[in-house]
Design a protein around this nucleic acid. Sequence first.
DNA 1: GATGAATGAGTTTTCATTCAT
DNA 2: GATGAATGAAAACTCATTCAT
Lengths: 193, 193, 193, 193
Amino acid sequence: MANSLIKEIRTKQVVDATKRCIVEKGFANLSVKDIAREAGVSTGVIYHYFKNKEDILLQVIVDAFRKSYEQVMDEVDPIEDPGRKLMSYIEKAQAVPQDNPDFQIVMMNYLGQANSNPEITNVMVRFFNNLTSYVSNIVKGQGKPNCRIGQAIPAMVIAMSIGTGILSSLSSEQYDSQQIGEAFKQLIRLAIK
Amino acid sequence: MANSLIKEIRTKQVVDATKRCIVEKGFANLSVKDIAREAGVSTGVIYHYFKNKEDILLQVIVDAFRKSYEQVMDEVDPIEDPGRKLMSYIEKAQAVPQDNPDFQIVMMNYLGQANSNPEITNVMVRFFNNLTSYVSNIVKGQGKPNCRIGQAIPAMVIAMSIGTGILSSLSSEQYDSQQIGEAFKQLIRLAIK
Amino acid sequence: MANSLIKEIRTKQVVDATKRCIVEKGFANLSVKDIAREAGVSTGVIYHYFKNKEDILLQVIVDAFRKSYEQVMDEVDPIEDPGRKLMSYIEKAQAVPQDNPDFQIVMMNYLGQANSNPEITNVMVRFFNNLTSYVSNIVKGQGKPNCRIGQAIPAMVIAMSIGTGILSSLSSEQYDSQQIGEAFKQLIRLAIK
Amino acid sequence: MANSLIKEIRTKQVVDATKRCIVEKGFANLSVKDIAREAGVSTGVIYHYFKNKEDILLQVIVDAFRKSYEQVMDEVDPIEDPGRKLMSYIEKAQAVPQDNPDFQIVMMNYLGQANSNPEITNVMVRFFNNLTSYVSNIVKGQGKPNCRIGQAIPAMVIAMSIGTGILSSLSSEQYDSQQIGEAFKQLIRLAIK
DNA sequence: GATGAATGAGTTTTCATTCAT
DNA sequence: GATGAATGAAAACTCATTCAT
């Protein structure tokens, strides 16, 4: 019990430190020594709790996506009215770069890995699928969506939030995610009304 | 003159080989030796034409974005009618993952670098700005866009194409970029008409 | 007293586990953690009962050689007739690779250490000396051995059993230690008759 | 051509240095850094010419056995008379510990690896098979060997030389390989005459 | 006595970069 | 201009050993 507690603590320490390192230096310039230093542990500890660097990196993305999903759920799910729920989801999704800039950066760092690392692809695809399903259910709760567009709304909502996040992460001055989000909400309202 | 021709050839050789390496192994697992082997030259040649690895990587993203921009221009620019032009742009942008999967993967690999590498950020921002301006001009040519939405349309178009590209690159089976593109075109038509 | 019992148990546990590890992975790829896991104890226990890894390794070879010596004695010593006793010894020695393959492998693993580790050399030399003396005494009991050859018989018997053991351990299919043993017994009989 | 020459030189440098390291420190305490230092090259060079440490170790045993085989051949093969040839072979084999003590030590270090490394086993088995065949051919040239014993003579000769080598390597004072060799030659003569 | 988490020096291996040819 | 051998610092990973609990 004490053991599993320590394991949990150390794992969290390392995963969190890794995120900070990725944010600071980027995925491609990331050493286990950096992670150890940032986590305040020896390299030995890291290899006591993780199989290898790849294992850490996988845990990081799993953890980041899980947390981001929970954050969205916490705020959006309690809303009952389907119309407001959808709008609220869009708002929340567009706010990620401001609310959670580290997650945004971590995600952008992992996108490049997806093509050559099936496990990472898997985690990402599951995450986006979950979001898509979630939005899909909200939309279904809305009643009669304009048929053709209706089916594509969930994917559009997710795609738009990814794209907006990236643009505003690249240049928050030139791409205001809130503004784009507002416009997108209006578009969706036009489609659904 | 002969020299500058060789320079051009070698530079292209190396840049193209680097792209292929990124597509195959990812940005984070990329060695100069790999690039040399893929380019069919010695490592010495690489350091004759490039300052260092970072320099190659910068050239690659510059080249990739330039080519992608030109591709879009080649097909979209000749169209005269503003309405058709906008639709055509959206189609073209959504088709990138299929038409030019390597560009898509290269871009995704560089996204993670943006946060920690200002030069890369710069290149990307300029690229997206160019596209945004381009779309903006098309939209202005349309006449009266619905005010509020109208201003955000260019950013939305770019964001949507980025997001759709990523989703379909992660799972082309689950995210059909053409289908999402069609729905998005309808949305835009609703907004503009 | 209870303490010394535990000590005995733990020491045996560790020594036996180390043998199994050597058999499985070889002397050169042997970690204290492996030993602990194989013995079913913590690494702490190991350092409670042994000074260090070297100490374990020494105990292992001491134990292995002691046991092997006892095994031979148990079977050969009761025989009274000197002629039959010598033949019996040769048989027994040649049978080691089959009867006690783990001992054979352990011994082969320690041979390489001998040159650079005087303590190990010591243990091995004492072991082979004991065997040589033993055989020497049997031969003396025989009466008149052919002078010149007679003196060398003990060393030849030991050398032959070492060599046969190694050959049949390397390839039991191509080197049948029993067959070689039979031939060798005939040779010895020719010399002694 | 110059390239392959350098390759040959470096490979030899590293293989020879590795042998010296094994003789000095033993197989189990052998670092690539040691090898590099002993060879007078950087670690990078080592990995330029060898896949990894295992690869070096394999080359070493291959080289050691090849050279030892050639040495025996050089001296024994020119002899025409079968009887003298066999005796000469036995002498030569028994002299290995004195003539070529490094080979003896290297071989003893690899014996322990055999059980857990099939490639090493392979090299050793082939070496001993070659010797056995060679002796077998000499014996056949002898005419009528005493049937039963005759077939086993080659294996006995090889086994005896291995065993004698080990004993005299462990304690040259107590085990005089030349003396044992002389006695063994007499035994063989008894069997063959 | 027993545990196993922790350490950090040491190991194997990689790789950007240089430079003699 | 081109080569690729060479370097050595730094990366990933291991492991004997210690020690607080």
